[in-house]
Structure formats: structure tokens, C-alpha cells
């Protein structure tokens, strides 16, 4: 199982790099969906002992939400907003990849300093979770379009989720549902917000929001 889990975690990091380097918003959504799907499947490979129905259900629901429902909602808003690309982000794509590498190194360093006791079958999961959180935060800070910021938020949530998975031996269903609900609301609200911004300003560039302040 370790090999499989390691592979999934490496794919998560690569998805992070790709997100940092792509400017086309539809691609970003696709990559985000892929990452969500992978994160959804993590509980199945993480538990060393066999797969129970409960874990399988949770995994399927989460993979479905992160891999299909959220991306679908986002691409809906994207279609209505007539935006194709992120033009002129605050921090360029090449610099963003450099940041990705740096954050990766930092997360591994952090992991070696903190030394958690890990319940999952791979030790890699903690640094990867850190790296995803940092990548998500970075996207929220460095990108202008609201869609990309929402994706950043989702990536950060993926990180938090995988972190929880590594630390907690068994995922309490209720907590998990609560988190999902939270997420759902967040994406929903953001979606409405994007839609509104777009209707008011003819684009979804959140940079322009500061013209609203009195």
C-alpha cells in the first residue's frame, strides 16, 4: 500500500506545481478536480488494515464532491463569466513554480522538525499536506481572478483534509460531513459572488473590487 500511497501523494504535489504554472482557468479547474479526486481516494489507501464500507463510502462521497461537483460548479460560473485566462497575476508563473519548490523544501523541513506520529501508511503525507496548504494560500494571495482564488481555497482544504487523515486514526463521519458542508457552502457563496462580480463589472478580476470602497 505504501507504494500506491506514495504515488498518489507525488501526484498531488505535481498537481500543485501544475496549478501554479497554468494560466488557463479551465485547465486550473481540471487540475484542481484531479487533485480533489486523488485526495478523495487517500483514505482507502491510507488505512493499512482492510477497507470497510464506511471508509469506502466516505472516500467515494469526498472524491465525488471534490472531483466532480465543485469543478462542475466552478466551470459553470466560468462559462457565464466569459473569462478564459488569468492575465497578469500578481506573481508570475515562473516565480510561482520557484515558490512551489521552496514551499516543498520548507514543508519537508517542517516535518522533520515537528515529527508527528503518523497513523497513515506513508510518512510522506504530512509534508505533502503542508505543501498543499502553502500552495493554496499562495494561490489565494497571488492570483487575481476569483475562480483561481476559489481553487486555491480548495487546494488548501485538500491539504487540511490530508493532514487530518494522517493524524487521526479514524475519520469521524460527522466531522467529515461538517467539513464537506462547510466547503459546499463556501464554493456556493463564492460562486454566487463571482457571478455577481461578473455581472457588475463584466469580468471576475477581484483586483477591481477595491473600486467599491467609498
Amino acid at each position: 500500500m505504501t507504494l500506491l500511497m506514495d504515488s498518489i501523494l507525488v501526484l498531488l504535489i505535481i498537481a500543485g506545481f501544475l496549478l501554479l504554472s497554468s494560466s488557463r482557468l479551465s485547465n486550473c479547474i481540471k487540475i484542481g478536480a484531479f487533485q480533489g479526486l486523488m485526495v478523495g481516494f487517500l483514505p482507502i489507501v491510507a488505512s493499512g488494515s482492510g477497507i470497510t464500507y464506511r471508509i469506502a463510502t466516505i472516500a467515494l462521497v469526498i472524491a465525488g464532491m471534490k472531483g466532480f461537483v465543485f469543478p462542475y460548479l466552478l466551470s459553470q460560473t466560468l462559462r457565464e463569466s466569459n473569462t478564459i485566462k488569468e492575465i497578469k497575476p500578481y506573481i508570475g508563473y515562473t516565480a510561482s513554480i520557484f515558490f512551489g519548490v521552496l514551499s516543498l523544501v520548507a514543508s519537508f523541513w517542517l516535518d522533520s522538525r515537528l515529527s508527528f506520529s503518523v497513523a497513515a501508511s506513508s510518512r510522506l503525507v504530512i509534508p505533502v499536506a503542508f505543501s498543499m496548504m502553502m500552495t493554496g494560500l499562495f494561490m489565494i494571495v497571488a492570483r487575481k481572478t476569483a475562480v483561481n482564488q476559489v481553487i486555491g481555497y480548495l487546494v488548501m482544504e485538500n491539504g487540511i483534509y490530508s493532514f487530518g487523515l494522517a493524524i487521526v486514526r479514524d475519520v469521524p463521519l460527522l466531522v467529515e460531513l461538517g467539513v464537506l458542508m462547510d466547503m459546499f457552502m463556501a464554493v456556493f457563496v463564492m460562486g454566487i459572488a463571482i457571478y455577481r462580480i461578473n455581472r457588475e463589472f463584466d469580468h471576475i478580476d477581484s483586483d477591481q473590487l477595491n473600486t467599491l470602497k467609498g
Binding site: 505535481i14 506545481f17 515562473t94
Partner: peptide, 10 residues
């Protein structure tokens, strides 16, 4: 290419 470098670092 920097992406290739990042993968090598990883």
C-alpha cells in the same frame, strides 16, 4: 524546463 527541475528536486 523549470517544471522538470522541480520534479527532479522532488
Amino acid at each position: 524546463l523549470i517544471g522538470a527541475g522541480s520534479m527532479a528536486v522532488l
